[in-house]
Design a binder for these strands. Sequence first.
DNA 1: CCTTGACTTCAAGTTAACTTCAAGTTGTAA
DNA 2: TTACAACTTGAAGTTAACTTGAAGTCAAGG
Lengths: 152, 152
Amino acid sequence: MEWLTIGDLANRSGVATSALRFYETKGLIESERTDGNQRRYRRAILRRVALIRAGQELGLSLAELADALESLPHDKTPSKKDWQRLSRTWRKRLDGQIADLVALRDDLSDCIGCGCLSLKSCAIFNPGDAASDLGTGPRYLLGDSSDEFVKS
Amino acid sequence: MEWLTIGDLANRSGVATSALRFYETKGLIESERTDGNQRRYRRAILRRVALIRAGQELGLSLAELADALESLPHDKTPSKKDWQRLSRTWRKRLDGQIADLVALRDDLSDCIGCGCLSLKSCAIFNPGDAASDLGTGPRYLLGDSSDEFVKS
DNA sequence: CCTTGACTTCAAGTTAACTTCAAGTTGTAA
DNA sequence: TTACAACTTGAAGTTAACTTGAAGTCAAGG
């Protein structure tokens, strides 16, 4: 089995054929065509698809992945260097994500203890250090006069 | 300032007025109306909105949040008990998320070391324990004859 | 040769979480 | 009382990552 059909690739990778075609339109993968215009894939494509799924699990968008995979050879298995460069970058990203979540958890733990009866003193209600990469506007939740608390 | 207009709330919470109206259609928040049909919010709404944003940062969908906030009083500040129940649930969720990411990182670290020249032995390429909550289909990436590796 | 499953393209549909727009109404400061 | 910002609703638009459907073509076994 020198070449894989799109069905073969779908079975082997666990990714739907529709998704594979979609990836191709996005420039994430490439294919050769038969005389009858059907896609045929080199076997190295399996690794590439695996990388895409792994990257997605990391939270990368397809656009970011397209970018990251740009630097890898399309036609053959990436070299050790290729892979190390990529995996080190991804590891840093993971470290960051973990750190953010741990910080959030610590804040939340404090909150459980404090009963969280004041917006002013509660870290959860007062981001600023939090992961604000998705935010649209300012997130200042302070400034309330405190008489609205203490109610339990 | 007994009642907040939607503009006030937007400024204080950092959430756009359009989003606040949207939250209302989703049943996440409530409002009274003036004679002229404009929304007026109790000040306790601030905490509720803050909770929504905090929950989103945790990765909860608005639907899940609507569910979680169901159990909290709409009209007044939640009691210490209310809050502790919620925050403990969320903390568990966070713990899980962190554990998943740490596992992924450890796998990735191994990969950096190994140069990752074999799909068969690499944990990243062989999920199964990985967070498969987003997946659509099976994810078996094994079963390649090994002659496609060792290339660097 | 013929059947049938696998393949092709392109357009439109899906979900989440909003935003934007249009057209009209309200609230308030001067 | 008048100007004008802020408010109202409902519909449509946005982005990501795909899926689904329609209508037609290819490949391989019998």
